[in-house]
Amino acid sequence: MVFTSVANFVRSRGPDEFWRKRKIFKMAAHYIGRSRNCYSLAIRSVHRALVFATKGRALKKQDLANLWVTRITAGCEQHDVNYHVFRESLSRSNIMLNRKSLADLACWEPFTFKALTDIAQKRALEEGIAPPKGNKVLFVPKRGSQKKT
């Protein structure tokens, strides 16, 4: 083992408690207030931070996926294609690009993206791919709405 200072060399065979706490203090080094100096407070905030980090790894993936969908939808709207029609048409045309690459193309290579939407439009027209049904109904006659006042 290599020790950079004499103080650590002295501790090297010493109490396990010091090294156990040091691991936590190292992780809490950038906190403010007592939570970086007092062990009982430091361990609390380090535990909390590690839980956040664990959850954050999944959330980051979801956030990015949402951002890609937003960007692809924006790119599709510029060329009058529905997002779902676009994805379905591309997969039927055997263009296997994932959301990340499509979003990159929409953002950085708009001309390439336009070519893809052109392909999608053609394919959708040929195979009759329609957007999923949404709440597009403008007026639904109800019992009271036809009455004369």
Partner: peptide, 9 residues
């Protein structure tokens, strides 16, 4: 700016 492909929060 959600209608732009450069969108980022």
């Amino acid at each position: 700016g959600l209608h732009k492909p450069i969108y980022h929060p």
